[in-house]
Design a protein around this nucleic acid. Structure first.
Lengths: 233, 233
DNA sequence: AGACTCAAAAAGTCAGACTTATAAGTCACA
DNA sequence: TGTGACTTATAAGTCTGACTTTTTGAGTCT
């Protein structure tokens, strides 16, 4: 999915990042670079690079004579894909999942409306293809195949919106959808109503009907929210 | 606004970050750590730390035997506040401003709706106070005072939504609003209609009327978008 | 009590030697 | 001529040790 273990400092981050985002070090906790370097059995230079990265994510703050202090959660760069991944892998996964789903419910409808205005013919075709793929795999416990098309569908919509900020949320949506299929309980086949909505969004975009694409997508994300409420009220 | 020049590597970033985000190094360009270190007159270790930060922002990719290659714009972490600041300071400021305003138009209405459900009494009071502050400074070229209250208003709404992802967009909104007042042409006093809308949003939130708060905020952000279209069609 | 000094602590910086991965070139063989 | 294996040059990656700088907290003097 991403860039795992690119060097020693990457390995350190893969351990320290999840630990911090999981709240194992409460805000205000002080770490010392030398100590960490010894603990991870790496040189100080490697450790310093790792700390710099954590600092750029606003997870920690490094100050002379005091050390590396963990910042309060409210200051973290929660849009950093790496941070999102760490948090989704950790204890407050449910909370993070809800935050992201609410974000989706705000962004995706507007993105769909813009997509209806800006999508190229090719993107329209892709969208229809994805929707059909969802229909084809919506029965018979073909969850994996369904997921692939679902993710692709939302990615195309976000890209077709023409807004770079929306486009970059493609990975986030992918994480959320994948998480729903893999981690949450998902014995049943997908809700037929949701499948139909996707098909209709594809149609609306192709028909350049922005208002309808937006409204239909709003129904999709509302369903996703409702699903969360049922699972974790 | 943020954390400028915290150490040598910070100074390097303050130069290299804006340069990359401004597109001075086209995607695929290859930089060499040693060369950069020599150019900025810093040691290799400092330069390496700077590169690690740029790498964590997905602005560049560092590979053995190749060097540090600049990644295409589509892969940048465009939600990183630092990246946003660099881009707002650079050449594609108008483009970035539009992207962010579209993002606002998606997020803020939903955030206002949630705020109407979750805002504490204290937050309601703050909101009213901000709105009144806007009214009081809406005439007589008191643009700076108006701006302060405007920024505060939107921050409170985003925080009161109870969603951490929304809350973290407070800084982004602040940048956009500040940019509008300082960089764009803004001789005139603020649009009276916009001021009234803010007051009514505060009322709606206090009245726990989520639908109304959302709709009114939608009108505010629609106005912001329209303003952009007039300035840069 | 307040201001002043001083020493310890931890991050920050630097220089240099060494290691490792890998792109690219070379050469032999089919 | 093309293809595979071998070699080499290169730039990042790593480690170490010495030194600098900033900041805090304790101790001291008035």
């Amino acid at each position: 999915m991403s860039t795992p273990g690119r060097g020693l400092h990457g390995h350190v981050l893969d351990t320290l990042g999840p630990a911090i985002t999981a709240g194992e070090y409460p805000p205000g906790s002080v770490l010392r670079t030398d100590e960490l370097a010894h603990h991870f059995e790496v040189s100080r230079s490697v450790m310093r690079e790792a700390v710099r990265v954590l600092e750029s994510m606003h997870l920690v703050e490094s100050r002379r004579r005091v050390g590396v202090t963990v910042r309060p959660k409210a200051e973290w760069n929660v849009y950093d894909p790496q941070v999102i991944r760490w948090r989704l892998a950790g204890a407050d996964r449910p909370h993070q999942l809800r935050s992201l789903t609410v974000l989706r419910s705000a962004v995706e409808p507007v993105a769909a409306g813009l997509a209806a205005q800006h999508a190229t013919a090719e993107q329209c075709a892709e969208l229809t293809e994805c929707a059909l793929g969802m229909v084809a795999n919506s029965r018979g416990h073909r969850l994996e195949e369904y997921l692939v098309h679902d993710v692709a569908f939302h990615r195309v919509v976000l890209n077709a919106s023409g807004n770079e900020m929306f486009a970059r949320l493609g990975d986030v949506v992918a994480e959320v959808l994948t998480g729903r299929t893999h981690h949450e309980v998902m014995f049943e086949d997908p809700d037929p109503a949701a499948v139909t909505l996707h098909v209709r969004v594809a149609e609306a975009v192709r028909a350049r009907d922005a208002a309808r694409a937006e409204e239909l997508t709003r129904q999709i994300t509302a369903g996703a929210l409702q699903e969360l409420d049922i699972l974790a009220p």
